[in-house]
């Protein structure tokens, strides 16, 4: 973590690196775009419901892309829908993250050969951060995917990358 490993130097002051503080804030409140596509969306809703409780990780659905940090592509992406998803993604403010949930969103799933209408993987349209395998993935798998995303955010830095 790095946030609380420094001692309290003064009564009200916590010393932490800006990176750690920003990352901790970001990864603790990943607001997802309220957006579902197919049967994976049912598992996603189950993950949000009381038993698995997505909210304990700070994940709450927002109904506009302009207030969302992450989008979970939960289901089969048709070519018709892919153009809409691209538009939604472009409307989200940076930093933005994408979880590709389930085989359909990962690679086309069962529609890989004869799905004339299916996009064979959402990563052909928008950049994916975490792939969650499964058909559909159980809520535990989606939670694992979220933890992986949090891990990724934790290791980010505000510093300019030196190429």
């Amino acid at each position: 973590m790095g946030l609380l490993d420094k001692e309290f130097a003064d009564g009200n002051i916590v010393i932490a690196r800006v990176d750690d503080l920003m990352n901790w804030a970001r990864l603790s409140s990943i607001w997802q775009l309220g957006f579902g596509l197919a049967c994976c969306a049912i598992e996603m809703m189950a993950t949000s419901a009381s038993h698995y409780d997505f909210d304990r990780f700070g994940v709450i659905p927002r109904n506009t892309p302009r207030q969302a940090d992450a989008i979970i592509i939960s289901g089969t992406v048709t070519l018709k829908m892919a153009t809409r998803i691209k538009r939604l993604y472009e409307q989200m403010p940076d930093p933005k993250y994408i979880i590709s949930m389930g085989s359909c969103a990962n690679c086309g799933g069962p529609y890989w050969e004869h799905g004339y209408h299916v996009l064979k993987g959402i990563d052909r349209v928008i950049p994916v951060d975490v792939y969650v395998p499964g058909c559909p993935p159980r809520p535990e798998a989606l939670l694992e995917g979220l933890l992986k995303l949090q891990e990724k955010i934790r290791n980010e830095s505000l510093r300019k990358k030196i190429s």
Binding site: L79, A82, C107, G108, W112, E113, L119, K120, R124, V125
Partner: peptide, 9 residues
Amino acid sequence: FYKGMKVPY
């Protein structure tokens, strides 16, 4: 292709 998206697997 459809709108720049590759269609076959």
